[in-house]
């Protein structure tokens, strides 16, 4: 069971308080794209073995969404940062403190 640091509550809490909310940093395209491009946005997600940027929501806490970089093999959490911020390159690939 994961231990996640909510970037808003600033506390490490158990996975039970959170819900997974899909891959992060998916750009919603403008509506004038082709059917194929729109379908790509709707249905296609990366499924890496390793670093994965994803969104979580602190359902039983502050109810806010945030971003997590998680290793899908080791389940190590590599970074946690608020919505709207891009992935912090300095944190990526390094173990958490």
């Amino acid at each position: 069971m994961l231990l996640l640091q909510c970037p808003h509550c600033l506390e490490a809490r158990s996975e039970e308080e959170f819900d997974y909310a899909g891959e992060a940093h998916i750009q919603r395209p403008a509506t004038d794209v082709s059917d194929a491009e729109w379908a790509d946005y709707l249905y296609f997600r990366s499924n890496p073995q390793g670093r994965h940027c994803e969104m979580w929501v602190h359902t039983a806490g502050c109810r806010r969404y945030f971003n997590v970089v998680r290793d899908t093999v080791s389940y190590d959490v590599l970074a946690v940062y608020p919505i709207g911020e891009r992935e912090r390159e300095s944190l990526v690939g390094k173990p958490p403190p």
């Binding site: 819900d19 909310a21 919603r28 929501v57 359902t59 969404y65 919505i83 709207g84």
Partner: peptide, 13 residues
């Protein structure tokens, strides 16, 4: 509610 919050927080902050 979670769906509305998702759009409010991530797409239209």
């Amino acid at each position: 509610l979670a769906w509305l919050e998702l759009w409010r927080q991530t797409e239209w902050p």
